[in-house]
Design a protein around this nucleic acid. Structure first.
Lengths: 190, 190
DNA sequence: GTCTATAAGTAGATAGAC
DNA sequence: GTCTATCTACTTATAGAC
């Protein structure tokens, strides 16, 4: 465990602010205000703003991997584990209503900016995609496991976008229930 | 018909650039380069950059209303008209692969910027939402017409986001086919 | 109506004191 | 490691000539 308190604080604050305000719209002043350091101090820890973004994406990758590993423990069946994925919409309901999906909004923004780290951000999607694919394979759907993974990713993504636009919590609950129904009706029974 | 050639050119170029690069990331220099006018000339036609955004949103509202009116003519049944909506994903496939959905990406960006015109952009979503709701009512689904409209909007939105992230045209075609199946299987036959 | 010149502010980034 | 002071580039916006 390295002692990098300030660096970690910067990454944590930048992570939140990039999510809430967008990457480009977040200035060094915003981050330094949040971390309570001077703007100059940044450059001891990072060379450029892009480097902070890379650190944020890397931190999100780690957090996501840990969450997926936890879901492996939480759900005893593939269905149960996929339900864990569907339910993040409810777990993070309030944040999603205000700021949308952290993965979708970042990849969308970086795509418009044609940013060098675009693909790194997309890897966050791939993490979920591959994990979901594995679960569908375990359900005996190896032929279309990736299609089902993409389908579910897209459904969640659309729900987050619309729920955020209309600030509609009920819509999230409704669609989550529908996705769970879809999962149980569409999949072979054990 | 007012003679406002330059003004219209500005709105048209801004519309494209806001879609391709995002609102904040697009500078007056970008727009003036596209229109081939000087930066100073802007302020004869618009007071602020926000005013250009409002004009762009207003133009998109007009274009959308005309498109919806055209779909009323193109489809003889509510099913057929809803299919027109589903198929915009295919009609605009190339643009969506590169820049996502113009409505979804704009509302998402303005939400993060906490921009004054956020609700004006959301009205674009509402235009589709209300129109779809009307079609589902005509199909005899007045009880859950709005839920169905929101469901379909979210599906399309998610498909656009994922297709853009992974630059996957096949995924669009696949999901469009599924949405059409859903529409025909789920809806009462005539 | 369109231009050039320029103001006023903010962005990311650097230098050097402590 | 953290600070202050500063630089350069770029942003929106204005003033005034043509």
């Amino acid at each position: 465990m390295k002692k990098q308190k300030t660096r970690d604080h910067i990454v944590e604050a930048a992570d939140q602010l990039f999510y809430q305000q967008g990457y480009e719209h977040t200035s060094f002043t915003d981050i330094s205000d949040a971390v309570q350091i001077s703007r100059g101090n940044f450059y001891y820890h990072f060379k450029t703003k892009d480097d902070i973004l890379d650190a944020v994406i890397s931190a999100r990758m780690d957090k996501t991997r840990k969450m997926l590993a936890q879901w492996e423990l939480d759900g005893s069946t593939p269905q149960g584990r996929i339900e864990c994925f569907i339910r993040i919409l409810i777990t993070n309901r309030d944040k999603i209503l205000n700021y949308g999906c952290p993965v979708g909004t970042l990849t969308t923004e970086l795509a418009k900016l044609n940013h060098a780290s675009r693909e790194e951000a997309n890897a966050l999607f791939t993490l979920f995609r591959t994990w979901l694919e594995e679960q569908f394979i375990l359900l005996g759907r190896s032929k279309d496991a990736d299609d089902l993974a993409m389908h579910l990713l897209a459904r969640s993504q659309g729900v987050a976008t619309l729920a955020s636009a209309f600030h509609d919590a009920k819509f999230i609950d409704q669609e989550v229930a529908q996705m769970c129904d879809w999962l149980n009706a569409y999949m072979p029974k054990e």
